[in-house]
Design a protein around this nucleic acid. Structure first.
Lengths: 195, 195
DNA sequence: ACTTACCTACCTACTGATAGGTATAGTTAT
DNA sequence: ATAACTATACCTATCAGTAGGTAGGTAAGT
């Protein structure tokens, strides 16, 4: 593994925050430069084009998510607890200033303005998350921490839908009651069998 | 009611489509001008600033939605049918080219880049929809077309969350299975009491 | 020890394109 | 004639991106 210089990750940190706040098309290299205190051209040194920045950001995001999600499963026993911790961690950044949205969700709305390589990375991120959820749901059901009748794949889709929908509306109204509603509904989903 | 000239609505039509496709910050007056076949400056005559365009668009959208939703309730008897027709009408535009997102949802993600008057109109649109849903849910429950235990306000929130989340993911993958999942889950929500 | 060569990480200064927006003159329907 | 509308021509600001240079460090050759 190549150790990337500090500025590289610093740029990605700022870009991530900006995308979560205003979206991919609404920030510029000048915005990042101003916040870090270097020149625009220096950012082009690390990321020749804006789409490169997006791609590297998504790859780092996928990698971070993989580590985080795998550790979550290792460190806890109850699958319901894992789900709750996971949901809270996603919603947590929303409680920070400006009600940031999930990085993937933000790029998902901008998806038709992104080049196809970047589109693929955004899709890959959600696929990764969905696969993890499916695994969690299967194990959770086997250990009787979860109860549901739909397929794990369907439940995973419903969870993603409610995460993104909840974030979108929480952001719009700057009100976390939308997240609480989503959270509650997700938990109902995985603890109730249909009649 | 003042009868607005044709170009006025034509501009709003194109703007609406562009916002649903790429978002508020990713289209320009030049894009609209090119599609209509007039000059950029002519659009500024109708809408001096871009934010004016957004505001007028949202007001028209609110007005159209109000008429549409009220007619829906008048023209059908079964509240479940009404809900299904409503959901299908929202999801229909997504099946058109490019998987357009709901206008409100698209502006919701751009919300932090919009001026506060426009933010308010986006919020007002969702409030309007939510109020209509609450009314529908109350009447539907009274007539035994719906069964649910949460408050109508909570169910309405959950429905909006699933509409927007479903659209976001359907758009990302250009795949309507996400809409079918959302649709199914919404119908489950309003026809099942919790145990 | 010192040169040569190359590298990383940043800089200044610029490009062409496009953004939103304006002043003003011309056109068209009533 | 006049109000409504559209056009030409232009503005300033900003966008992503490039050219070329520089400071400092590393590695190898002699």
């Amino acid at each position: 593994m190549v150790k990337k210089p500090d500025t590289y990750n610093h740029i990605l940190d700022i870009a991530e925050e900006l995308i979560q706040t205003v979206g991919f098309n609404a920030f510029s290299y000048a915005d990042i430069a101003a916040r870090i205190g270097i020149r625009k051209a220096s950012i082009h040194y690390h990321f020749p084009a804006k789409t490169d920045l997006g791609k590297h950001l998504m790859l780092r995001h996928q990698s971070n998510a993989t580590v985080y999600l795998n550790n979550l499963i290792k460190e806890h026993k109850n699958h319901k607890d894992i789900l709750v911790i996971y949901l809270k961690s996603i919603f947590a950044s929303t409680y920070e200033a400006d009600f940031k949205m999930c990085l993937g969700g933000m790029l998902a709305t901008d998806v038709l303005t992104l080049d196809s390589a970047l589109q693929n990375e955004v899709q890959a991120f959600f696929r990764l998350t969905q696969d993890w959820l499916i695994t969690l749901l299967k194990h959770g059901k086997k250990h009787k921490n979860f109860k549901f009748t739909d397929s794990p794949a369907d439940i995973a889709k419903q969870i993603l839908i409610m995460i993104e929908g909840g974030l979108l509306l929480a952001r719009l109204y700057q009100d976390d009651k939308w997240l609480k509603t989503a959270m509650k509904q997700i938990l109902t989903l995985v603890t109730h069998e249909e009649k």
